[in-house]
Amino acid sequence: MLDDRARMEAAKKEKVEQILAEFQLQEEDLKKVMRRMQKEMDRGLRLETHEEASVKMLPTYVRSTPEGSEVGDFLSLDLGGTNFRVMLVKVGEGEEGQWSVKTKHQMYSIPEDAMTGTAEMLFDYISECISDFLDKHQMKHKKLPLGFTFSFPVRHEDIDKGILLNWTKGFKASGAEGNNVVGLLRDAIKRRGDFEMDVVAMVNDTVATMISCYYEDHQCEVGMIVGTGCNACYMEEMQNVELVEGDEGRMCVNTEWGAFGDSGELDEFLLEYDRLVDESSANPGQQLYEKLIGGKYMGELVRLVLLRLVDENLLFHGEASEQLRTRGAFETRFVSQVESDTGDRKQIYNILSTLGLRPSTTDCDIVRRACESVSTRAAHMCSAGLAGVINRMRESRSEDVMRITVGVDGSVYKLHPSFKERFHASVRRLTPSCEITFIESEEGSGRGAALVSAVACKKACMLGQ
């Protein structure tokens, strides 16, 4: 009897593995994704193909990295998701002549009506938060230079001027797309009239992360975010950046690689679950690469896999709870928690219980395998993109072996128990001629924006502006 049951459990697990095998990517698959990513990057950089390229390769006008001589107080704003952060950054000489960066910050959550109302409502709310922060720190009387981390696709015309191309991540505030974001912020500050600010720089969160990590390690020339969304930036040779005049030196390019796949480059790798996630998203047909990796989508992918296993009578005796059938019910943090389970399955059992399920031991094991399959594919897909960037940098610099540091931020990278190990191992397999160091950014977005502002202020002083 026991043997029969054991055989049935083994057969069930084997069927589960057959279904989950769809998520496995072979090294040849990853090399294919990497080569296609490089081709799209090239198209994004070139003037004649930029418009139709899915990977936009947006110039950021960040050319210099901090040298350690900029000092002063800077205000930093960070808008990239449902939370908005205001930070005071003091850049100065530390002990023994070292450079020191001290920060104080406060988080504000953005109400739904500000995210989806008008641009005026959104930026009025942001300036209200700045006003509140300055009151708390008794700094209303000071006109501070301000660095703005704005983590949406922007076409820069200068370091302090950028046109919002399109909202992502659930934002829909009308009247912002096609307009200068810094102008919208300046107008809102003017409307309030109770404080003055000098907006000197606007950067993407990947750029802010790279600059913040450069402060720790001067070989950091790539910034990457794996959180709600997924994106990367890197220092490109100016001669390859056709959208900006000049051939000397390097400029940081914001790849906006989340949109890779929007022209069909990933079609052969998309599964039924991916198509369902895409169809029910706020932007169907867009940001397809990001939807395979980002935390906004990972939990939902797992939920759809679990429903398939229920329908195949391989999980929960073929019956799903009402909660499990509800879109968004299986949160991405559950994926991390399930994979963090120590082996007694308590954590998995508790999560499934909150979803109205009474799982068996085998159910718990199957749910864990589903989570591992989805998150491992995410790590491997992400590795193909980064390997594409790094191999490109090595080739354009004609280096036999390139040493490089990548600064990384984002909740999936930082909080998932195995993502970074799987990701690092896969990147290294795909970049055999590179020695890569990964560092995690601390308060990256805010500190990085302030350091970019410090560079901009120093330049302005040198130019006598």
Rank of each mutant, 00 (worst) to 15 (best):
A188H: 01
L324K: 00
A232H: 04
V338M: 00
A259L: 10
V305A: 03
S64L: 10
H137A: 10
S109I: 10
G285R: 14
V203S: 00
S100D: 07
R397F: 10
L314W: 11
K56Y: 14
G94K: 04
E196V: 07
G183E: 04
L45F: 03
A370C: 09
A119S: 07
K143H: 04
D205C: 06
S281Y: 11
S281D: 04
M57T: 05
R63E: 00
M57S: 06
E216A: 03
G249M: 00
M202G: 03
N180A: 05
L77K: 00
V226I: 04
L146A: 14
A379T: 07
Y214V: 06
A6G: 10
A259Q: 12
E95T: 06
K56V: 08
I390K: 00
M381H: 12
A176G: 06
G464R: 12
H137T: 13
G299N: 10
K414T: 12
N391V: 09
E216D: 06
W99E: 04
L430P: 00
E51L: 10
S64K: 15
L58Y: 12
K346C: 12
C230M: 07
V207I: 10
A329P: 03
S281N: 15
T168L: 11
V452L: 13
G328V: 04
D365C: 02
G261I: 04
E279A: 14
V33I: 07
K169H: 11
D409Q: 10
H317A: 09
N83A: 11
D344E: 07
T103C: 14
K172G: 04
D400F: 02
A450R: 14
A21F: 10
R368D: 06
K56C: 14
E265W: 03
G227Q: 11
F330W: 12
L134S: 04
K15L: 14
E256V: 12
S151L: 10
V277L: 11
Y349E: 08
V305Y: 00
W167R: 13
S340D: 05
D409P: 08
T437L: 12
E157N: 14
G72S: 01
A232E: 04
Y273I: 14
R275V: 11
E265S: 03
R397A: 14
S100I: 06
A320Y: 06
C213L: 08
S383F: 00
D158H: 10
N204D: 08
A188F: 02
V302G: 01
R392S: 08
L122R: 07
V86W: 01
R275L: 14
K39T: 10
S321V: 09
K13L: 13
L463D: 14
D187F: 04
T431W: 04
T362W: 12
R429F: 12
I126E: 06
R85V: 04
V207S: 02
V33M: 05
G249S: 04
V277Y: 09
K140G: 06
N180F: 09
L463F: 12
Y108G: 03
E9Q: 02
V302I: 03
G170M: 13
S396P: 08
H50P: 01
M41S: 08
G162L: 13
P417Y: 11
Q286Y: 12
R358N: 07
D267C: 01
G178E: 07
A119H: 04
H218S: 06
L451T: 12
T60G: 07
H317W: 12
C220W: 00
R35G: 15
Y125E: 10
V305I: 01
S131L: 09
E237C: 07
K90V: 03
D205G: 05
R63S: 00
R186D: 05
G285L: 12
V222A: 03
D247F: 02
G444A: 03
D3T: 13
K190N: 12
T431V: 12
N240P: 01
K459S: 12
V207R: 00
K13I: 15
S441K: 08
T60L: 01
K136D: 10
A201Y: 01
F74I: 04
K136T: 08
L324C: 07
V310Y: 09
R333Q: 12
M8C: 15
I110A: 12
A456Y: 04
C129T: 10
K169P: 09
I293V: 08
M8H: 15
N254K: 03
E395S: 14
N180T: 05
V389R: 00
S453T: 12
E421W: 14
F195A: 02
K31I: 13
E395R: 10
T206A: 04
L276F: 15
Y349D: 05
L430D: 01
G261D: 02
Y349T: 06
D409K: 06
R368S: 06
T206F: 02
Y215M: 02
I366Q: 07
V408T: 12
Y61L: 07
L185D: 00
D3W: 07
E52L: 14
H416P: 15
T65P: 00
K136Q: 09
G97S: 09
G94M: 08
D124R: 03
D278W: 10
V182R: 13
L45C: 10
A454T: 13
T82W: 08
R36Q: 06
A456E: 07
G407E: 00
D267I: 12
F171P: 12
S441Q: 06
V89K: 01
S109Y: 07
E421S: 14
G170I: 14
S131P: 02
G285Y: 12
E322T: 12
C461W: 15
Q219K: 15
F438C: 01
L58A: 11
T326C: 09
K31E: 14
F269L: 02
R303W: 03
G407M: 07
E272T: 06
Q337P: 01
E435C: 08
G72L: 00
G193I: 09
M115L: 11
L355E: 01
M238L: 03
M402A: 10
A11R: 14
K459L: 13
